[in-house]
């Protein structure tokens, strides 16, 4: 199987798995009338999985799903799941006694700085460094096939 096809298939499987997990979280909440204990975990994991899956699909289309990019996206998934997981798992300390990290309560700090700041510059710079303006994707294929019947403007 071509690496790009394998990447697309992997991205689709991840996307379906992630979206299905989100769907299960919603279904469980609707059936019970309140979120079951596992629902936030399923929603956090599913959202993380679906988000990374979209990056995998895009990288496969651009023919840039190298081992380096795969490792980067794997790390992104770990960051998302670890930050969400820590926020769900850590026991809250009530009141003003909770420790601060960089000006915010610890659990919020993990989410904000972990998810909000870590990928903020790493992703766009990674995109720029792996960008290949000559790579072709399925859009090109569709265009070539159909352009025979429609002259450009």
């Amino acid at each position: 199987m071509h690496a790009s096809s394998a990447g697309t298939r992997a991205g689709l499987v991840m996307l379906i798995a992630g979206v299905a997990a989100v769907g299960c979280a919603y279904a469980g909440t609707v059936v019970d009338g309140a979120p079951p204990a596992w629902a936030p975990w399923a929603l956090a994991g599913g959202t993380s999985f679906a988000s990374v899956a979209l990056f995998v699909l895009g990288a496969a289309t651009r023919r840039t799903l190298s081992r380096g990019i795969a490792a980067l996206l794997g790390a992104l998934f770990v960051v998302l799941v670890a930050a969400f997981g820590a926020a769900l798992a850590l026991t809250p300390e009530i009141g003003s006694g909770e420790a601060l990290l960089l000006g915010l309560p610890l659990r919020l700090s993990i989410v904000f700085y972990g998810i909000g700041l870590v990928p903020l510059l790493i992703l766009p710079i990674s995109f720029a460094l792996t960008f290949d303006p000559t790579a072709n994707g399925p859009g090109d294929a569709a265009s070539r096939r159909l352009s025979r019947t429609a002259p450009p403007e």
């Binding site: 895009g58 998810i115 700041l117 992703l123 994707g137 859009g139 090109d140 070539r144 352009s147």
Partner: peptide, 22 residues
């Protein structure tokens, strides 16, 4: 933090190809 890159990563090139060729 993800979506600014996600849009370019997933959509920009295929859409640009369609704009250019079709």
């Amino acid at each position: 933090s993800l979506t600014n890159t996600m849009g370019a990563w997933v959509l920009a090139r295929p859409l640009h190809d369609l704009a250019r060729e079709r």
